[in-house]
Design a protein around this nucleic acid. Structure first.
Lengths: 224, 224
DNA sequence: ACTAGTATAATTGTATACAATTATTTTTGC
DNA sequence: GCAAAAATAATTGTATACAATTATACTAGT
């Protein structure tokens, strides 16, 4: 039975979203090995659609295939995080510049609501919410940029980043507050149609995020 | 039987490389529909590994899945080409900057050999060779940059670009010559450890390539 | 006790049969 | 003749059985 306008998820897509969440939320931890038979029976599907889901996650660097064909959850290296942020920096610049040019009054309004939620949230310190609304803000800009290639790549990179963000147990409360304010300033520049200003603040924002990330990872390096 | 140090390709990987080539070389043309049963019997394998290969190509935007599950070879749009080049520009900047910092004498020597082949080639006008050695040059820089994320993304984007480059029948001979010379100048800047200079020439190079690409596509737009 | 070799088990890779979905053709009622 | 409905065909999605590969446990010889 399907509600109008909806479609039942295929077994493969179901497995994809389920496993992805397990990896992003750390239920499947870095360097843990993945056995197809285990996962498929756990999810109540056969190995065929499961393998499709795993292959897709492998493309997204959320699952790693060793030379012997065995799969595992990739571990996290500082070098890789730095690489990802190097790319992310440039693509976020593209996105925010074009988004500024394309933004309508309605877009500004919608972004304001997201920023409101970010500021409302970071006091509570619930890491899931902070990550959620932050992602909302950035994703809105990706869509607004109109560049689907940029949007697609950034979404994937952010998923990779999400993993360790979520896994690092102690969050820097000050950084969360600062990050929220950076979003607010970026929005302000966009509203003023100041694409260069928006870009400059975005650069700071990404750079600060990188530094916070490395700091947090180093502090808990012993886990990895 | 396998020779030492070699491994027989799995059916999936065999299918992947085979189909990818067909798409890149235009044997499978834009907007052509793909039927699994046809392809699998044609390649002499079952549908199971074939589907794995197709899924991977889908991820790389070399195969497109329509909402009804059917597959086709994606058609080519100028807007998408522009988007890809926007991203490629920034990532090539990253790559050439870091490659300049990392380049040893040996690397300069190897790059010189590639540039020699480019210049030797563009007189003959054999499009396959020109594309091949040009790709060699860029790929060498990607490796040299040490940033695997950048390298991975650029490689994929270049495959997408390769499709229409190869499909556009008439090539601009003057542009090929100019492009070859640009490679030479980039190498010169790298040899001088002038990363900013190398970056600037790379920007010109990519911009010129984009313009040539759009010009060529527009000229043959009726095909698409 | 250790190593090489062999047997066993665990896991991934592939083929095939069938189920579910989507497209096409045929039929029916008007 | 046309539109809606039904039947048929084509295609993709999934489950399962088996083949091939890789890892582990065991044995024998020294």
């Amino acid at each position: 039975m399907n509600y109008p306008g909806t479609t039942r998820l295929s077994a493969k897509d179901y497995a994809y979203f389920e496993i992805k969440q397990k990896i992003l939320e750390g239920e499947l931890a870095p360097s843990q090995s993945i056995v197809e038979e285990e996962l498929s029976s756990q999810l109540g599907i056969s190995r065929t659609p499961l393998r499709g889901a795993l292959q897709q996650l492998e493309f997204e660097n959320l699952v790693e295939r060793k030379s012997n064909g065995r799969l595992k959850v990739p571990s996290i290296s500082i070098q890789e995080v730095e690489e990802i942020f190097t790319v992310r920096m440039k693509l976020e610049e593209i996105a925010v510049e074009q988004a500024t040019d394309n933004a309508t009054e309605d877009d500004i309004h919608n972004l304001s609501n997201i920023v409101y939620m970010i500021k409302k949230t970071y006091g509570d310190g619930r890491i899931e919410d902070i990550l959620y609304y932050g992602a909302q803000f950035h994703n809105y800009l990706y869509d607004l940029s109109g560049n689907r290639t940029v949007s697609h790549i950034l979404t994937q990179l952010n998923d990779q980043i999400h993993r360790y963000r979520r896994l690092v147990p102690v969050q820097n409360v000050d950084r969360n507050k600062e990050s929220g304010e950076e979003h607010e300033i970026i929005l302000d520049r966009i509203a003023q149609k100041d694409s260069q200003g928006a870009k400059a603040v975005m650069q700071e924002h990404i750079q600060n995020s990188l530094e916070a990330a490395i700091h947090a990872i180093k502090a808990f390096k012993k886990q990895f």
